[in-house]
């Protein structure tokens, strides 16, 4: 599965914005990313939402991952 990140992840990834990650659950994905880029997992849990194939999940654990899913990390969204 492909993962792209926008916003403020670059500081952990040395500027990389696209990765290939193997994970079937979001929890797994965060663990993998945290292992590769220490600090990133925490950043995602605290302040990121995730879009899976175009649909935004504010609470990423709810997202269902399928093989080949396109996953995008974006800043969490609030509102007025």
């Amino acid at each position: 599965m492909i993962l792209a990140s926008g916003g403020s992840c670059h500081q952990f990834t040395g500027g990389r914005t696209e990765f290939d990650v193997e994970a079937t659950t979001f929890r797994r994905l965060i663990l993998e990313l945290e292992q590769k880029y220490p600090g990133l997992g925490k950043q995602i849990e605290e302040s990121m939402a995730v879009a899976v194939d175009g649909e935004i999940f504010q609470d990423a654990y709810l997202a269902e991952l399928k093989p080949g899913s396109e996953i995008v990390l974006i800043p969490k969204i609030g509102g007025g």
Binding site: A4, S5, G6, G7, A51, D53, G54, E55, I56, E70, V72, L73, I74
Partner: peptide, 8 residues
């Protein structure tokens, strides 16, 4: 979009 999300 430029932030990666595909509109649906």
């Amino acid at each position: 979009t430029h932030y990666g999300v595909t509109h649906s």
